[in-house]
C-alpha cells in the first residue's frame, strides 16, 4: 500500500540533488510555454521568464539553480505592465551572452476585446465618440491613463533591452494600438544594428484594426540586420 510511507520521515524537494531539480525546473519553464516559436504569439499563458522568476522566489537554493541557468532567461516575454517590465533586467543579466527572443504582448485575458471594453467604458464616460470612428478611437486611447501606463512600460522595456540589441535573435510585438507599433518601429530605427536578428514580427490586435504603415518614416536598425530571415506583419504594412 502506498500509505506505507506514513511512518517514514517526510521526504521533501530539499532532498533532491541539483541535477534533478534542474530537470524539474526545465520542464516547468519550457514544457507548457505556449509559444515555442518566435512568431506572433497568442495571449494564453505566462512565458518562460516569468515562470523562471516564480521558481526563483521559492528559496535560496532554487534561486541559485535558476539564475545559474542562462537558457531559462533567454525568452523575454513581457506584458506591458510594471510587474513584468521589472523582470527584464533579470532576463538580460541571467541569460548571460545568449541570444534573446523578445516577445511583448498584452497579458492573458486582456485581449483586444477586453481592451475594447476598457475603451467602451472610457467612451461612455467621455461621451464623445462613436465606436466606429477609428481616428476618434485613437484620440481616446492615447488620452486614457491605461494607455499611458502601457506606453511607459513599453518605453522602459525597450530601454532595458536596447543596449543588448546585438543579442536579439527575434523580436515580436503584439500591440493594442497603432501608435504603439509606430512608437516601437521608431525606436528600432534608432538602434545601430541587429547582427543576429532572424525574425521581426509586428502585430496590431485591436477590434478597430487599421493598417499601420510605420516604415515610411523609419527603417529598423538602419537597415542593418544581416541575418534577418522572416518579417511577420499583421495589420502592419509597408507603404
Amino acid at each position: 500500500m502506498l500509505d506505507a510511507t506514513t511512518h517514514r520521515p517526510q521526504c521533501t524537494a530539499m532532498s533532491l540533488p541539483n541535477e534533478l531539480l534542474l530537470i524539474i525546473f526545465s520542464i516547468c519553464v519550457t514544457s507548457s510555454a505556449s509559444h515555442p516559436s518566435p512568431e506572433v504569439p497568442q495571449a494564453t499563458d505566462l512565458g518562460t521568464s516569468p515562470k523562471a522568476l516564480a521558481l526563483s522566489h521559492v528559496c535560496h537554493r532554487w534561486r541559485s539553480i535558476i539564475t545559474s541557468t542562462p537558457t531559462f532567461w533567454t525568452r523575454v516575454e513581457v506584458f506591458p505592465a510594471p510587474k513584468y517590465v521589472h523582470m527584464v533586467p533579470s532576463c538580460v543579466k541571467y541569460s548571460r551572452s545568449l541570444p534573446l527572443d523578445i516577445i511583448i504582448r498584452p497579458p492573458s485575458g486582456v485581449s483586444s476585446s477586453d481592451h475594447g471594453n476598457d475603451l467602451a467604458q472610457h467612451k461612455n464616460k467621455e461621451n464623445v465618440l462613436s465606436s466606429s470612428s477609428v481616428s476618434a478611437n485613437t484620440v481616446t486611447d492615447i488620452d486614457s491613463p491605461k494607455f499611458k501606463k502601457r506606453r511607459r512600460c513599453l518605453r522602459d522595456t525597450l530601454a532595458f533591452l536596447s543596449p543588448h540589441v546585438s543579442r536579439w535573435s527575434s523580436f515580436s510585438l503584439v500591440a493594442e494600438h497603432a501608435s504603439l507599433v509606430s512608437y516601437v518601429v521608431s525606436h528600432l530605427a534608432k538602434l545601430p544594428s541587429a547582427p543576429i536578428l532572424r525574425t521581426l514580427a509586428l502585430s496590431l490586435k485591436h477590434e478597430d484594426r487599421v493598417l499601420v504603415q510605420p516604415f515610411h518614416l523609419h527603417v529598423p536598425f538602419h537597415g542593418n540586420a544581416p541575418q534577418l530571415e522572416t518579417i511577420l506583419l499583421d495589420a502592419v504594412g509597408f507603404d
Partner: peptide
C-alpha cells in the same frame, strides 16, 4: 506542495538579483 522552507529575508524574496549566485 514540495515541502520547501522559505529561507529568504523579506527583502530578498522578491529580488532574484540579491544573494544569489550567477
Amino acid at each position: 506542495i514540495l515541502g520547501v522552507e522559505n529561507d529568504f529575508t523579506p527583502e530578498e524574496e522578491h529580488s532574484p538579483s540579491s544573494k544569489c549566485t550567477g
